[in-house]
Amino acid sequence: MKLSLSIGKTGNLSGAGFGQLFWRLFGRLNPYRRDNDSPRHHPGMSVEDKRSETTERTPLHGSPDERAARALAEPGGPLIECRALTHTYHTRLGTRITAIADVTLAIDAGEFVCLLGPSGCGKTTLLNMVAGFLAPTAGELRLDGKAIHGPDPDRGVVFQDYSLFPWLTVESNIAYGLLMAGMSAERRKAEVGALLDLVGLPHIGAQYPFELSGGMKQRVAIARALATHPAVLLMDEPFAALDAMTRESLQRQLLDIWTRTRKTILFVTHNISEAIFLSSRIVVLSSRPGRIVEDIRLPEDSRPRKRTSPEFNRLYERLAQAIGVEGSE
């Protein structure tokens, strides 16, 4: 155990090498392999990607100005559209539970939307439906005008639990979506390098997930989700398992990534101050069944928001009341 740990750190493959080599070769076992330079485009692949087709993908996430200009140039409906969305399911004992009831919500490109609510209010259910992991029982769900059917790389997901593949290096984890899209090895390498820089972890590509701290793992998970240039980034309480200090530093980093990429983000949390600090818009869901009780757009003038400012605290009080819990921190 100690042996393989130290080997991983130094990047010396002599000891544990054959296992690593085995899985690297095993991962190449790909009956559908298309190793060419034209990335496959999914039917619903990211709007931004199709736009940037004409320009070129190399400037990884485009400057905010370019994005804004493009968004203005292309009129259209909202990016994500939920109409009368309902999800019910049966427990093992046969009880019928309505997790989400009649939710209508439109999210525009570039927004940072927090879904805020008490535990078990169905906010994760809503996110899972947008991700395509769950199908709506009733209602409509569209991304860029097209109905959502199942998961797709046009929606990147960052999970609450650590979801990095433990048998792959950080590099291979981030490159996974690019490999699936059939990108060539050189281009994958360049993209992975840029993504690692973006999340501020330029030197850990050769390490394995078990060698990283919880905060680093989630930053790598963000990089992996961004790799396929998704139209929207879905985040399901990604910082809930981290300690308070790491959480705040990751919140700042995520905000930084959002300002640089202007990626549309749908972020689920039960932490009020996290929601206020991060979002451009907060959607509050009530307890089961989840319904929208508040939809607040926040002013963009005072970024980063000071957690000690009076406005921050006023909003905090208001949200706490809307949720029905006093000071849920």
């Binding site: 095993f26 559908y32 790389p153 979801s163 593949f165 048998w167 996974y176 899209a181 790799a227």
Partner: peptide, 26 residues
């Protein structure tokens, strides 16, 4: 969570079997 992650990164069912299910159960 591994299956979901792989699917949302564009893995097909066939690929997911070799690249996720087998290493995860190894």
């Amino acid at each position: 969570i591994y299956i979901r992650a792989a699917r949302s990164l564009g893995a097909s069912r066939g690929l997911e079997f070799f690249q996720v299910v087998i290493p995860a159960s190894a």
